[in-house]
Design a binder for these strands. Structure first.
Lengths: 153, 153
DNA sequence: GACGACTTTGACGTTCGCGTCAACGTCGCC
DNA sequence: GGCGACGTTGACGCGAACGTCAAAGTCGTC
């Protein structure tokens, strides 16, 4: 639908500033789809999707642009591998691409799992205390049944 | 065992620089246990545990000292609630403390669960693709059985 | 072709989380 | 009480991830 975007429109669509867009370009995360004759940056739907993905990753992983860049690079590589797929493709090539894709996917999974594991260990401790609190609560209500209220004795 | 620590010993025991220790103090995360007559910072085992906890949280949550501070504050509050517990304690007071502790614990759990959820959603996608790859691999090996190798035909 | 809205590059400012001097004082052991 | 190791405050430096302002050019419309 919507054609080429100027930087302001792109930025607004993604909820970031134009400065941020330019900074991402400087850091190699987002390249304009093209340029106008006068030299203005032009973007498209793909740019927008990528920019949104960057923000999503920032939300998930934290705003470490280097790490986001690494993840994006991995995802890009997966995309090109997918794009290379064609019907009359020699089997060995397909096997090789599949192997690479699986390796990249495994790498990404490892990154994410590692982070989850750290958080999970913290959550485990919190849940353990939670159980302890539940037990305390049970004991307290039991004792209050034994001696419901000072007045009632 | 070991008595009061000077800043250098504390920092080394925790694997950080003395600058970092002073910065944490400035940010309100770590207060010295006391001071020498001459004005040097003195720390103890509790300080060391806290400093290590700060680094642990940084590892788990990322190095946002404000958030780490918030978590520490919550944990501190839990600690003082625990410390207030005594034998001949009126039941209502115990109930109140328990309720507050459970609320704080729930808040911390919410924070952590939220982060885990984000990461988990990303992991889910990766695992989905992983399954897809496995299927591709199965199909490929099936077709290679049908026509094992070009040479064998 | 003029006008207003938008962009460009460049540069300086800001907040974090420290690293790194500098100039001075403290500790504790001989 | 002297000496070397260590600590104190203060200040500037640094890379990250942008915000902000200036001077100039571009875009599309009237």
């Amino acid at each position: 639908m919507s054609g080429p975007l100027r930087i302001g429109a792109l930025a607004e669509a993604a909820g970031v500033s134009t400065r941020t867009v330019r900074y991402y370009e400087q850091r190699g995360l987002l390249t304009p789809a093209g340029h106008s004759v006068g030299g203005e940056r032009r973007y498209d739907e793909v740019s927008l999707a990528r920019l949104r993905r960057i923000r999503e990753l920032a939300d998930i992983l934290g705003s470490d642009l280097d790490e986001i860049g690494a993840v994006l690079a991995a995802e890009d590589r997966l995309a090109t591998l997918r794009a290379r797929r064609q019907a009359g493709d020699p089997a060995p090539a397909r096997v090789a691409r599949l192997a690479e894709a699986e390796a990249i996917n495994a790498g990404l999974q490892a990154r994410v799992r590692d982070r989850i594991a750290r958080l999970q260990s913290m959550l485990d401790e919190l849940e353990a205390r939670s159980l302890y609190y539940a037990q305390m609560r049970a004991e307290l209500s039991a004792s209050s049944l034994a001696a419901p209220s000072p007045r009632q004795v």
